[in-house]
Design a protein around this nucleic acid. Sequence first.
DNA 1: TTGTATGCGTTATCAT
DNA 2: ATGATAACGCATACAA
Lengths: 340, 340
Amino acid sequence: MTPKKSPRPTMEDVAHLAGVSRALVSIAYRGATGVSDETRALILAAGEELGYTPNRVAARLAGGGGDTVGVFLQDLHNDLFAEFYDGIRAVTEAAGKELVLAVGGADGGHDLAALQTLRRSRVDVIIAGGLRLSDERARRIAARVPLVCVFRAVPDVDSVFSDDRLGAEQAARHLLELGHRRIAFIANPPDEGYLGRREGYLAEMERAGLAARIVEGEYSRATSAVIAARLLDDPEPPTAVFAHNDQAALGVLDTLAARGLRAGRDLSVIGYDNSSASRFPGTALSTVAVDGEALGRSAAELALRRIDGGVAEGVGPAAAAMWLDSPPALVVRATTGPPA
Amino acid sequence: MTPKKSPRPTMEDVAHLAGVSRALVSIAYRGATGVSDETRALILAAGEELGYTPNRVAARLAGGGGDTVGVFLQDLHNDLFAEFYDGIRAVTEAAGKELVLAVGGADGGHDLAALQTLRRSRVDVIIAGGLRLSDERARRIAARVPLVCVFRAVPDVDSVFSDDRLGAEQAARHLLELGHRRIAFIANPPDEGYLGRREGYLAEMERAGLAARIVEGEYSRATSAVIAARLLDDPEPPTAVFAHNDQAALGVLDTLAARGLRAGRDLSVIGYDNSSASRFPGTALSTVAVDGEALGRSAAELALRRIDGGVAEGVGPAAAAMWLDSPPALVVRATTGPPA
DNA sequence: TTGTATGCGTTATCAT
DNA sequence: ATGATAACGCATACAA
């Protein structure tokens, strides 16, 4: 009278009920070849009856792997990464790969831990969007697991990115052509990569024979708001501000609103990313558009090639691919105008 | 002269190098008790030297489990779910649990597949934010794996939610008090739960002796824009629109903008969620605030109790907990005003 | 086509 | 504190 142990049905149970061997059940559930359609239907029916769900954990341990891609997302609050994820999913889903996600924290402090998590879960490749780690650290990670850095170029590491420097030049030039001369740049932490935007700004200012004015900031809206206030209180305040990304630009807009000032008239503001927030009619932030979804798709394709074989199989970081994808596009909206 | 196979270092390798047994290595890496601090340091050093990373897949197969929580997120494009995730992470991280994520698609069609993925990966409990499945389906899933539904009350299933009905009543009343009489409600698909908002609207309209006007919509901004256009072209157009959520309300705003109409003057619009999009100064959408992060925290606590034991351990859906959390709060901004 | 053994890297249960 | 040994659930040769 020992009651049958019922924890969770396994392949064994399904095989038993269907009157076949475990191997057959395995094949049937994977859609692999080696079973007659009839027996497969029979097996699936048996599984259904038992409420069986394949155990992916066991499958990953046993199988060779090669069907799991890890994705790192810098920030769920930033719409750009949602688009990025959409792009990745579109191609990985079509290829029948499973996605494992890891999300960064507000600051870059958690990025490394997130990558570790991905590594522990034995993903076959990692696509990292918006990694805030030094190039050196990124390289060290790439040495242990195939890594594709996105939105950012890391030398010697597979990277898919937009030409930030070019985009920044366009933004700066736009401000310059409007007649601005005192243009400040709110930068990101310099030790976390993403230097292209800063460089573009610098280059364009130099070309115009103007003094550059870089203020180190972060990615957050709040921090940027504080910086903007300081800038405005300066004895010789800038007439235009170019922010490293939209989030930061939004922070500038916040202080402007708080002081009853109007963006585009009292101070020109331009961001970078063309995040959904910048697109709202009421916000109408001038910015530089980055196609997050396209970058996601390209990154996923690169990642798949790394694990599925193909052209780049086996090659290490030595043959890192650098994909300059989807050129940035200046988007002029309402927050930029001629100096007051 | 057979070269040592180098694929990936395992515990065995670490144990070998450290001159101890595998079991010790296991204990050392888990921080469990049973090793002297000295040997542990020695083991960790050996692991470091080999570039060893614990294999979580194997650990999950072997171990009893109980340390993995699955999270379903309806939509990465909606900021509300980012907050929700933050709340979950705050408590699960403190409890030392691993998170496994699954994301829904644009429509609810992928929700079931996402849940399946979570099930296959053998998470110990699932926290689902914004599930678009019928109550019945949700119940069937809950019968097979501990499930916590959030933002929504599913009878007989653990649920953590805000009082949508109350919030909707507040929104409707706000419109009523402003003097509106023809108030339309853009609803979500009726078979996907989330009926509280509709009910609140209905109740308040009835109380005022007014005719309700419900238009079935979806969650998307685009669909809602089309609906708004139709509403506006009606021979007797509403003077106010209450949308099921902010996304939908934004769609109404889009149509207004496209026609050169002004929200708050030509047509009052109110949404629901207080998503970040609604907060932008330029948008200033009146709405009802939901504390996504608080709901996430509560849901996580409930989930942990389910797996870690404690008060609710072992109890099935029969004793489902319904947490009415964080009361909704009316947020009046610029898109609502007296009728023209 | 179908069934059988072996191994995947850990954890857990025993002994010592 | 430490060291063997048995699961964990499945994939993958390989034999039938």
